[in-house]
């Protein structure tokens, strides 16, 4: 119990310090934009990403045969997380004509190739698994 109380007190102190840093080193116009970004991140996750994942899982549970579901779920997690982490390089929005050493890979083509490979791997795994489970019956 004492450990937890100390952790809560310490956590609250660090949060307060962070809030003070934010408020004291930025002006109100900047606070507003930070607030918008904080809120937008939560909405992007809680509404958009979560909504899409729920819809995909719902469709998957209706349309995807049982033997294919595990490979499809693994692919969704790995490929989906990789895609989200790669958004800044996939858009190449930070690329600059005067700096050829930045964002110097064919990111979008790579992403399409990876996506195609993921589809093939899921298809093969699903086919093998459904074949095996049928053979085991």
């Amino acid at each position: 119990m004492r450990t937890r109380a100390v952790l809560v007190a310490l956590g609250a102190a660090l949060m307060t310090y962070g809030a003070w840093l934010l408020l004291s080193r930025q002006d109100p116009g900047q606070w507003l934009e930070v607030g918008i970004w904080l809120g937008a991140g939560v909405v992007a996750h809680d509404a958009v990403i979560s909504g899409v994942v729920i819809a995909v899982c719902l469709l998957g549970s209706r349309l995807v045969p049982p033997a294919w579901r595990a490979p499809a779920a693994i692919a969704l997690v790995v490929w989906g997380a990789l895609t989200i982490a790669a958004i800044p390089v996939l858009t190449r929005a930070g690329a600059r004509a005067d700096n050829p050493t930045l964002l110097d890979r064919p990111y979008l083509a790579t992403w399409w190739a990876i996506s195609a490979i993921v589809v093939v791997v899921v298809a093969v795994a699903g086919f093998v698994r459904s074949h095996r489970s049928r053979a085991g019956e």
Binding site: L7, V8, L10, G11, A12, A13, L14, M15, T16, Y17, G18, A19, L21, L22, R25, Q26, V34
Partner: peptide
Amino acid sequence: YALAWVAIGALLV
């Protein structure tokens, strides 16, 4: 930098 303190504090709580 500021939000790192907020995040780590909230994580401890």
